[in-house]
Structures are given as structure tokens and as C-alpha cells.
Write a protein that binds this DNA or RNA. Structure first.
Length: 367
DNA sequence: GTTGAAATAT
DNA sequence: CATATTTCAA
């Protein structure tokens, strides 16, 4: 960078020279800093913008700097492309709105010409994407259930530059291995012992690589961020068993309500929404294939025995923090009840809610 | 706040 | 395509 300075032909007799030199030196420092960051590939678009702003201040008076920068960027771009070709690394990052400036109508841009900047930005995005980042989360100290978030702040870059990685196995108290219900809790469920540590073990499913769920559109201008998606809950056979069981106790899929089901299931960490979702799926299924149809594999769904041995399911070893409920689909149900599409309808005067009407509707649709 | 259905995301 | 989550309207 230093020798580039020599290429700038300055009028040595100009009285402005000292100032200019000073400015240039300043600017060179900025550029240097900038390119250092570029070369480390650890900057972000926001950061880039910040840097641009700094330089922008100089740009009118010292157009040469632009050339310097352009050169630097060109080179870096090439290098980056080469690197990119060799290995593509996962991008795990997300950026947060920062500030909240008005994007479209807000204030007028302070520097007149924007074309240059725009070009820069467009080219910048080419190589700004890949962010090098450690991708391996130590599975050992991964306290499932927590959100790991990291912030990375660069020296020159202010607080606008944040990088977050979400990584959670499951939420909340999911993990309490077990708290046996002290004695009298076990009333119904046909001998089902209320198990607490049940479900949560599953969500560990596939996180071999990395799990970050984030969605944010950072297209032009609008950065709209929502909270990351919840980790998927895997409905293990046991879990499903409990579900079906509770379902039947409540009088069938149409009568049961998510909350009730959840309460009957007595699975710690299970949320209403999850049950609701499962119920929705379940209903769809029993609607689709009303009865017979020995589609064995496809209908392994609710084929599980109504009440069976869930007793042995999870209770095993308490020591391991990793709950065992993760089994693959090993539960082969020898379907006991073939076509139970028609739910048992007993109560008559339950006019309160609408499941009857819903049934009616369904019937109508079928006709 | 709960529920069911539909829109999305994985 | 199947399943789980999020959103939306009652």
C-alpha cells in the first residue's frame, strides 16, 4: 500500500500538500484496515457499509483513494473466488437489523454520487457471503436446551455487527430425567406411568452438521427478522402411543382437544402446539384412509396397539442425561384395530363445541 | 388463552 | 411427499 502512495503525483509546491498528505495517510490507514478485514473474511455486510461510509467522506477530495480501494478490492475478490472454489463452507450467520433506519424514504443520502457505491456494494456481495466460522459444536458440553448465542465484534466495527448462532436441542425443562410423580399422581392411563423425561430426548435427531434455524430476509432494504424456528419434535413411537392413548380416552380424535390430550399424556416439556399439530396430522390421516386398506407401511401410523406396554418404555436408566426415547421406528404394531375411522361417539348432549358439526361436514363432503 | 385450519418450513 | 411449526381467524 505504501508504494502506491508514490504513484500519486502530488504537487510538491502546493501549500495544500501537507494537509493532503495527512489526509491520504489517514485514508490509507483506513484502507489498510479495511483490506485487512477483507482478507480475514471476517467482516460482514454491515461492517462493509460502515467502512464505506468512512471512506466516503474522503472520496470527493481524494479520488485516487477510490482507485486504491478498487485495486485492493479487485485483488481480494479474486483471491476470494479462488478460495471459494476450493471449499464452500456453510454460512451460519444472520444479521440483525441494526439501528432501524428508514430504508426507502428516510433521509437523503449525504454524498451526491451513489453510483460508485452501488457498484461496490454489488460486487461486495459476491465475496462477502462466505464467513468462516467454526462449525463444530462440541457435543459434549452442549447443554441441550439452551440457546447458544455468540456475538462477534470486530475492532473497528461497532455494535452493528453481530453474529448469532442458535443451537438448541430442546427447550425448557425438557430434560429433567425424571421426577417421579410422588405417589398418587398415577391415576388413569391404564397403567401408564406418567413419565416426564419422555419426549424430549428425541429432538436431538439430526444435528450432525449444524442446526440453525433462522429466517430473515435481507434482500434490499428490508430486514425482517423472526424468531428462529423451534427444534422439531420427533414423535417417537412411545410418544405417539401416549398420544393415541389419551386420544381414545377422550373419546376419539374428533372429540379430544389438544390441551386435554397433553394433560393426559403427562409428558413433560410437551407443548400444546405440538400436540395440536400432531392431532391435526392424525385427523388428516384418519380422514384420508378411513378404514381397511392394508397399506401396511404407510399406515403404521395409528396402528399401534391401543393400550400396550408403554410401561417399559422410558423408565430405564436414570443416569444418562440423554434420554433414551429416541428409538427409531422399531415398534412394529400388529395392528389390532383395523378400521376405526369412526370414532366412538358417546356423549350426546355435548352441544358445547362443534365437533359434531364438523363430523357432519365431513360426512357431507364425502357425499 | 384455546382451537382448528391453513400457510410455511424442514 | 411427510411431518412439524407458525400464523391466522374464530
Amino acid at each position: 500500500m505504501g508504494e502506491k502512495l508514490k504513484e500519486l503525483n502530488l504537487d510538491s509546491d502546493s501549500i495544500f500538500v501537507p494537509k493532503i498528505i495527512s489526509d491520504i495517510l489517514k485514508e490509507v490507514s483506513v484502507i489498510d484496515d479495511f483490506s485487512r478485514k477483507l482478507s480475514k473474511l471476517d467482516f460482514h455486510v454491515n461492517a462493509f457499509e460502515e467502512e464505506l461510509k468512512k471512506i466516503d467522506a474522503f472520496k470527493r477530495e481524494l479520488p485516487n483513494c477510490m482507485h486504491l480501494l478498487e485495486d485492493a478490492i479487485e485483488k481480494l475478490k479474486e483471491e476470494e473466488l479462488q478460495l471459494k472454489g476450493k471449499e464452500l463452507r456453510p454460512v451460519i450467520e444472520q444479521f440483525i437489523p441494526y439501528k432501524s433506519d428508514s430504508d426507502e424514504n428516510g433521509r437523503e443520502k449525504r454524498s451526491g454520487d451513489f453510483s460508485d457505491k452501488k457498484n461496490w456494494m454489488s460486487s461486495a456481495q459476491l465475496w462477502s457471503t462466505p464467513v468462516l466460522y467454526e462449525n463444530n459444536f462440541d457435543s459434549r458440553n452442549q447443554d441441550s436446551g439452551y440457546i447458544k448465542s455468540r456475538y462477534q465484534e470486530e475492532g473497528g466495527i461497532g455494535s452493528d455487527y453481530k453474529l448469532q448462532v442458535y443451537n438448541f436441542g430442546n427447550r425448557g425443562g425438557a430434560f429433567v430425567p425424571f421426577k417421579k410423580p410422588s405417589g398418587d399422581e398415577m391415576k388413569e392411563t391404564n397403567g401408564l406411568v406418567p413419565v416426564q423425561g419422555l419426549s424430549l430426548s428425541s429432538p436431538v435427531c439430526e444435528m450432525g452438521s449444524n442446526d440453525l434455524s433462522l429466517k430473515g430476509k435481507c434482500g434490499n432494504g428490508r430486514v425482517q427478522q423472526q424468531q428462529p424456528r423451534k427444534q422439531r419434535r420427533c414423535w417417537s413411537p412411545e410418544l405417539h402411543k401416549r398420544f393415541v392413548n389419551a386420544l381414545h380416552q377422550l373419546g376419539g380424535a374428533q372429540a379430544a382437544t389438544p390441551k386435554q390430550i397433553r394433560e393426559l399424556m403427562k409428558v413433560d416439556g410437551l407443548t400444546n402446539d405440538e400436540v395440536k399439530s400432531h392431532l391435526q396430522k392424525y385427523r388428516l390421516h384418519i380422514q384420508k384412509l378411513p378404514s381397511s386398506s392394508a397399506g401396511v407401511s404407510s399406515s403404521s401410523w395409528f396402528t399401534q396397539e391401543r393400550y400396550g406396554d408403554l410401561s417399559k418404555a422410558i423408565v430405564t436408566h436414570s443416569g444418562s442425561p440423554q434420554g433414551p426415547l429416541n428409538h427409531g421406528g422399531s415398534t412394529k404394531g400388529v395392528s389390532v384395530n383395523g378400521g376405526d375411522s369412526m370414532e366412538e361417539d358417546e356423549d350426546e348432549k355435548s352441544e358445547s363445541h362443534s365437533w359434531k358439526s364438523r363430523l357432519q361436514k365431513q360426512v357431507e363432503e364425502h357425499l
